[in-house]
C-alpha cells in the first residue's frame, strides 16, 4: 500500500510500549512490523517483541510475531510474549471458558486449520505483542467469529490478559 510505504518513510522507531487489544487501533499493527515509526501513545509498537527491522526479514514460524500463521484472526496480546505459549496461559491467569474461531493456512503443509482463540484472564492486561488480524472475522451477529469483544466474559474474573491459539483440526474448506 502506497500510503503505508509513505507512512513508514516518515517515522522512526519508538520503544514506548503500551498495548491493548480489540481495539480501535487495530490492524495497523500488522503493517508496522519492522517499520521505523514513532507512536507516543498508541499500542501498535511491537518492537519489544519483534527484533526484525525489515518486514521481509522475519521467520514466518516465529510465534511472537503477528504474521505467525495461527494468528490470522487474533486480536489481542500474544501469550507467547506474556509468560505463556501458543497453547498455554501465563502463570497466575485462568483460561477463558469461551472462545472465537479462525481458519488459518499453515505455510508448512499448505493446509487450513480451524484455530480456537482463547483469552487468558484474571490478571491485568499483559500489554505486550499486540496483534490484530481479521481473516474471516465477522460482526458480533456471528459471535463465534468476532474478535472485538472480551472473551473472558464468562470467567469469574473477566479482566483480559492475553490470547492463545489452539488448533482444533483441519478445515474442510478454505475460510
Amino acid at each position: 500500500m502506497e500510503w503505508l510505504d509513505n507512512f513508514f518513510e516518515k517515522k522512526t522507531r519508538s520503544i514506548a510500549q503500551n498495548s491493548s487489544r480489540r481495539g480501535a487501533l487495530a490492524r495497523i499493527a500488522k503493517y508496522f512490523v519492522g517499520a521505523a515509526f514513532v507512536l507516543p501513545v498508541l499500542p501498535f509498537d511491537r518492537s519489544s517483541a519483534n527484533a526484525a527491522t525489515n518486514s521481509k526479514d522475519f521467520d514466518p514460524l516465529d510465534d511472537q510475531r503477528c504474521e505467525y500463521w495461527r494468528y490470522c484472526a487474533l486480536d489481542g496480546h500474544l501469550c507467547t510474549c506474556c509468560g505463556g505459549s501458543i497453547t498455554t496461559c501465563p502463570p497466575g491467569s485462568s483460561a477463558s471458558t469461551v472462545s472465537w474461531i479462525g481458519t488459518c493456512e499453515n505455510p508448512e503443509d499448505g493446509k487450513h486449520y480451524i484455530v480456537s482463540y482463547y483469552d487468558c484472564c484474571g490478571v491485568s492486561s499483559c500489554g505486550r505483542c499486540y496483534c490484530n488480524e481479521n481473516i474471516g472475522e465477522k460482526p458480533a451477529y456471528r459471535m463465534g467469529l468476532h474478535n472485538d469483544i472480551n472473551w473472558c466474559m464468562g470467567n469469574e474474573s473477566e479482566v483480559y490478559h492475553c490470547t492463545v491459539s489452539i488448533v482444533l483440526g483441519t478445515a474442510s474448506d478454505k475460510a
Binding site: 481495539g23 491485568s124 492486561s125 483480559y160
Partner: peptide, 8 residues
Amino acid sequence: DLALGHVI
C-alpha cells in the same frame, strides 16, 4: 478510550 492496557 478503552484503555486496554489497564482495562479496568
